[in-house]
Structure formats: structure tokens, C-alpha cells
Amino acid sequence: MGYPVGKVAAWSGVTVRTLHHYDEIGLLSPGGRTGAGYRSYSDEDLDRLQRILCYRELGFGLDAIAKIVDDPGIDALEHLRRQRELLEGRIGELTRMVESVDRVITAKEVGGALTPEEKFEVFGEFHEPEGYAEQAVRRWGDTPQWREAAVPLSKEEWIEAEKVRQDWVRRLLDVVDSGAPADSDRAMDLAEEHRRMLAAFMGECGYPMHREVAGMYATEPVQLGFLVRAPDQRPGIGEYIRDAVHANAARAGER
């Protein structure tokens, strides 16, 4: 049974002109002609077209597709298996791309949850650096903690979170200004409280993760600024927090 070019074009989603081009370059020459001389495609031609379109969708050029579909060492079933394998790889790639975009969208939504006026009301003069959301996605986006993070979205939630941060910082400064060492009970208790604060946000914050986060306070001023605002910072306070976190982990038996 033969199928006219118009019907094949409608079934396959390509134009008649494309089918004519495939015929002209020898990629897909229909097996028959009607009495009036029009192209007539067989079931075998349709199978070949399916393979061509699948490889084209996977990004192969027409010259490469011609070599693949004309390979005498690959039968129709093997073509299907190969296409399935390639499609699975493409699906995995696209899934990773979608997840990456979703993470950026989430970061942008969190950053845009408050109006500029509300941000000033909650955070005062403090604001995150330009492009920080994308940087955070690159650093943390593939972690379970990022996927499970319970980020405040409403103004009221941000206000409450900011109150918790301010209270913790006030008590930290009291300890620092008293001269107590980073491995003192008071400093370690604050470190443990900070770990639990992070866990409430992340869903989980074990001691290794806590040490990793605290290490950034000592080496990355931007990260330290999220926890302790610049006017409240003391010389070496990032290192103090890091050391208190390490001491607290050791106290808990985590080396």
C-alpha cells in the first residue's frame, strides 16, 4: 500500500518541501510512484522516515543520518534500540537542564518575594550582592539541603527569621566581647544553636555540613555578611564562628 506525500507530511509533522528535499538528496526516496507520477511512500519508507526524524531530533546532521540509516550492519530493531538509548541520554540531559532552571527560578522567586520597601523594612540597608542567587544555585543547587530548604516567603516570615538572626548575633557579640575563647561552653552552645537554625532552614544540617558552612564565614565576606551584618562585625569574628563550630562538632564526638 502506498501513501501520498501530503498524507505522509501530515502524519510526520514535516513539510512536503522537506520530504521532497530528502528525496532529492537520496536520504528518503519513496519506493513507488502513482500512475500520475506522484511520490508514493511504503510502510518501509515510513519506518525509515521515523528513524531519520528521530536522529534529526537528537541533533544529527543529514549526512550523518544518511550514514547511520544506510549502515547494513544495523537492522530496524537495532536502530530502535540505539534510538532509545540516545533518547534516554537526551531525556537525562534535559531533565538536568530543567532542574537547573527550576533552581534558578526558585532562587529568583525567593529574592523577589519582598518588595524593595519591604526589604528595607526587614533588612535595613543590607541587601544581597547582584547575582548572588545564581551563585548560590551553582554552589548548592544539586544538594538535598537546597531541594528541601524551607525558605521564608512572606514578609512576616522574613521578619521573624530576621529577629532570630539578630538575637543570635547579639548573644554572639556578648560572648566575643567578654573574651571567652571559641571553645568555651557559651561559644559552643551558640554554635550548636546556629546549626539547628540552619537545620530548620535546610531540613538537615549535620556537623560536616555545619563545618563547611562555617568555613565560608572565615574566608568569604559575602557569606559572613548574611549572618553578621558589617556594623556588628568584629576583627576575626568569621574565624571565631568557624572555630566555635569545629569545637562544638568535636564536643559532639564528630571529628
Results as ranks from 00 to 15, higher is better:
89 G>K: 08
139 R>L: 12
220 E>D: 14
37 G>I: 06
25 I>K: 03
132 Y>V: 08
58 L>N: 13
168 W>N: 03
178 S>L: 06
248 N>Q: 14
93 E>V: 07
155 K>R: 11
228 V>R: 05
247 A>L: 14
133 A>F: 04
118 E>W: 03
36 A>R: 15
222 V>A: 10
5 V>L: 14
117 E>I: 01
129 P>M: 05
80 L>F: 06
186 R>Y: 04
81 R>L: 09
80 L>C: 13
194 H>N: 09
239 E>S: 15
26 G>R: 03
233 Q>P: 10
36 A>W: 11
54 C>Q: 11
116 P>D: 09
122 V>A: 09
6 G>A: 00
207 Y>E: 13
244 A>D: 03
69 V>H: 04
226 F>T: 08
231 P>N: 09
192 E>C: 09
113 A>N: 08
50 Q>R: 10
52 I>H: 01
178 S>Q: 08
38 Y>W: 12
66 A>G: 06
67 K>E: 10
29 S>F: 07
63 D>L: 15
234 R>M: 12
212 E>L: 13
112 G>E: 11
150 A>P: 05
135 Q>S: 14
224 L>E: 00
125 E>F: 07
75 D>F: 02
196 R>A: 08
29 S>C: 10
142 D>I: 04
117 E>G: 06
112 G>T: 05
129 P>G: 00
122 V>D: 09
180 A>L: 12
242 R>F: 04
115 T>N: 08
215 G>C: 10
153 L>F: 15
226 F>S: 11
49 L>C: 04
212 E>G: 15
187 A>G: 07
119 K>W: 06
140 W>D: 12
81 R>E: 06
202 M>V: 09
182 A>G: 11
23 D>Y: 00
232 D>T: 04
80 L>M: 14
191 A>G: 05
76 A>P: 04
15 T>Y: 01
222 V>N: 10
8 V>R: 07
210 H>M: 14
123 F>Q: 07
160 E>W: 09
234 R>P: 13
195 R>A: 10
152 P>D: 13
63 D>A: 13
128 E>Y: 13
199 A>L: 02
69 V>L: 08
151 V>F: 09
81 R>Y: 05
114 L>N: 12
148 E>I: 03
19 L>Y: 00
154 S>I: 01
107 A>Q: 01
59 G>P: 01
170 R>S: 12
101 V>H: 00
241 I>K: 05
186 R>L: 13
193 E>K: 15
239 E>L: 13
25 I>F: 01
160 E>S: 14
92 G>K: 09
155 K>S: 07
79 H>C: 09
197 M>D: 12
68 I>R: 14
240 Y>D: 06
241 I>Q: 02
54 C>K: 07
45 D>F: 06
184 S>G: 10
199 A>Y: 04
122 V>R: 03
232 D>Q: 12
179 G>A: 15
50 Q>A: 09
7 K>R: 10
53 L>D: 00
87 L>Y: 14
33 R>E: 08
119 K>Q: 11
82 R>E: 12
225 G>D: 12
75 D>G: 07
68 I>D: 02
92 G>P: 05
247 A>P: 15
100 S>I: 04
144 P>M: 02
219 T>H: 13
148 E>M: 13
136 A>S: 15
198 L>T: 11
135 Q>G: 10
198 L>I: 15
29 S>D: 10
17 R>E: 00
156 E>Y: 06
57 E>F: 06
37 G>F: 00
